[in-house]
Amino acid sequence: MSVSQDDVRRIARLARIAEPSDRIAQLTEELNGILDWVEMLGEVDVQGVEPLNTAVQTPLPLREDAVTDGGIVEDVLKNAPKSEEGFFVVPKSVE
């Protein structure tokens, strides 16, 4: 598996990071290097082996259904560049 320069531009756009136009060629090469390296795993014969979701063998902890949090609107909004009457205020994002 490998990625093209267009793929890299698309990944940047999906991740909402500025398109690094002057480094596209270099980034594509680096990403393909990583993918090649991971490709080595393809050498392992996994015929008949169930996919492994996690290496951790403990069960998922479940919590009881009780209200134990919230009511901290000031903390929640503390880092927001702009807020008003308890709302986050962000640039217009209507469809």
């Binding site: 919590r63 009780a66 209200v67 134990t68 949090d69 919230g70 009511g71 901290i72 609107v73 903390d75 929640v76 909004l77 009457e85 308890g86 709302f87 986050f88």
Partner: peptide, 19 residues
């Protein structure tokens, strides 16, 4: 995934945990 309330109609961002 958090202990904040699900009740409808509360003041904005009052039923919000850091999660």
């Amino acid at each position: 995934f958090s202990g904040a309330s699900t009740a409808f109609g509360a003041a904005p961002n009052t039923h919000v945990s850091l999660v």
